[in-house]
Simulated assay, not measured.
Amino acid sequence: MALKVRKNKSPSLPNNCPLTECMAVIGGAWTPNILWALKGGARRFSELRLDIPHVSAKMLTTRLRELEDRFIIFREVKPTSPPSVEYSLTGFGKELMPAIEAIANVGHKIKLKRDSLENQSDKIAS
């Protein structure tokens, strides 16, 4: 006997779904890390490389360009000698920070739960 398909009680996603748009922005590899690094203020490329040690220069460049194209970060060329470039969050980028922080908080809880279960498994196996 086949199971009856239940009606979805969630509201339908609108055309050109804003959730999909937002996830396309923050879903890229290293993007949450970049946003996290910029939440404290403007950073130069070399500083971001230090903040996110495992990201390659090529990937960081790609993500910074994407985030700039999507109005999440602002790229400013400083009138120094030699010229330097700083990246900072735009208004949209700042609006994303509570969501990024909430995701990080849940991730921390999941990690604690997983670690706790692994420790329990280790004790049982001993």
Rank of each mutant, 00 (worst) to 15 (best):
I73P: 02
G28Q: 00
A99H: 11
K58A: 09
I52Q: 03
K7T: 07
P14G: 00
P18A: 03
V25K: 05
W30L: 02
G93F: 05
A29R: 08
R63Q: 02
L117Q: 05
A99W: 14
E95R: 10
F71L: 15
G93Q: 02
N16D: 03
P98M: 04
L48S: 01
E66N: 09
N119E: 13
T80W: 06
T90C: 02
E101M: 10
L13D: 05
E86N: 12
N8T: 02
K123M: 13
R65V: 11
A125S: 14
P18L: 00
M23N: 04
N119W: 12
K123A: 15
L96G: 01
K9H: 11
V106R: 08
L38F: 11
I34F: 02
I72G: 06
K4D: 00
M97W: 05
F71Q: 15
A125Q: 12
P18D: 01
P11M: 04
R65M: 12
I100K: 08
V77H: 07
R70I: 09
P53R: 08
G40M: 09
K109R: 13
M1C: 06
P14K: 04
D122N: 13
S56Y: 05
M1E: 04
N16K: 04
K111A: 12
L96C: 06
K9D: 04
S84L: 15
K78M: 12
S46G: 13
M1G: 06
T61F: 12
P83K: 09
E66Q: 08
A37L: 00
W36M: 14
P83V: 06
P11K: 03
G40Q: 10
K78S: 14
E66Y: 08
L60H: 01
L96I: 06
I100P: 02
D122A: 15
P53M: 01
R65K: 15
D115V: 05
A42V: 06
E68M: 12
N33E: 07
G41F: 03
R114Y: 08
P79H: 11
L64M: 07
S126I: 14
R43T: 07
L19S: 04
L89Y: 03
T62I: 10
K9S: 10
K78Y: 11
